[in-house]
């Protein structure tokens, strides 16, 4: 067992120490090594059951966790539910009880309601990993973004990262803040004032974070940019005049990339709206780390599963 690790659940990284974050990142590096072998499989979670409970549509994150669990030889069960628990007719309370009765070791869950993983974690003995809850947190995404940025930039101490887009509704932005700031990075948020929490715009931003409405100024000299998905519903909700105007004012194109430090990379949690928040030439250009994020995501999720569920089992038998 790792002395820096005593967590039972991964619900949010907002109260994690730098040492805990680095433990996951170090463990992730070992997982990258496992994934680079001809047979991408380690026995560490043999005999353990990982339940993937996705109450909100997701393909990328669910598949990433599934591959991660299988690469560690865990048994994987999928419970997918479309729509909210209310539409489905079963309450989250009953679902939590059912999952408890099924007896998984790790429960990876995504849910449309902020805080839902806390609700379930209080009612189950399984280790719960939050794979995205409402507009609150997406810890594995924050950790994989930190891992990917460290690969590209080295130590993040003093590095300035711009996060651009719909901050208000973004669990990715929140988890990026709570992962990158403890590692020494400074964050500049940019996006329409209607899509940034008022408290963060008006004097009460989280530690290490500033807001700059002008995206060009936010990008000036930045060491990296994280571009967020713009949901089309935001325009219908009256938060934006039009997607076209959004794209002109906040969209990231090649010209805007030139404002950052030379060679500074761009990331996006996906799925992208090319031509809205990010130009295709940027998304698929040489400075894009977007595919790298997807690959690293599997390694980081393996690290989380291993730290939560492996107990004293060694990662690889030949090292045991």
């Amino acid at each position: 067992m790792n002395p820096q690790w005593s967590r039972r659940h991964v619900l949010d990284t907002d109260d994690w120490s730098r040492a805990e974050i680095e433990t996951v990142l170090d463990q992730s590096r070992a997982m990258v090594e496992v994934l680079s072998r001809p047979i991408r499989r380690a026995p560490a979670l043999r005999g353990r059951t990982v339940i993937l409970f996705f109450a909100e549509a997701s393909t990328r994150t669910r598949v990433s966790f599934e591959l991660a669990a299988k690469a560690l030889s865990a048994d994987v069960t999928n419970i997918t539910a479309t729509g909210s628990s209310l539409e489905k007719g079963e309450s989250l309370y009953d679902t939590a009880r059912t999952l408890e009765a099924l007896g998984g070791d790790v429960l990876v869950m995504r849910h449309a309601s902020s805080g839902a993983p806390y609700f379930v974690a209080r009612r189950t003995s399984a280790a719960v990993i939050n794979a995205g809850d409402g507009t609150h947190a997406h810890p594995s995404q924050g950790l994989l973004d930190a891992f990917t940025l460290r690969e590209a930039l080295g130590d993040l101490e003093g590095k300035r990262i711009a996060i651009v887009g719909d901050i208000l509704h973004s669990r990715v932005a929140r988890s990026d803040i709570h992962t990158l700031v403890p590692l020494g990075a400074r964050i500049t948020l940019s996006g329409p004032p209607t899509l940034v929490p008022a408290a963060w715009r008006c004097g009460q931003p989280p530690s290490g974070v500033t807001y700059e409405p002008d995206v060009d100024r936010a990008l000036d000299g930045a060491d990296a940019a994280i571009v967020l998905r713009l949901q089309r519903e935001r325009q219908q909700a009256g938060l934006l005049p039009s997607l076209r105007e959004y794209s002109r004012v906040w969209g990231i194109d090649v010209g805007r990339m030139g404002r950052m430090r030379a060679g500074a990379p761009v990331m996006h949690p996906g799925p992208m709206n090319e031509g809205v928040e990010i130009d295709a030439a940027v998304a698929h250009g040489s400075r894009s780390l977007i595919e790298k994020q997807v690959t690293n995501g599997v390694a980081v999720r393996m690290a989380l599963l291993y730290l939560l569920a492996a107990g004293s089992a060694a990662l690889l038998e030949d090292r045991a």
Binding site: S114, G115, T135, H136, A137, R174, P197, A198, A199, W200
Partner: peptide, 8 residues
């Protein structure tokens, strides 16, 4: 600031 952090 609390609602902003909790995503509520």
């Amino acid at each position: 600031s609390v609602s902003a952090e909790l995503g509520l």
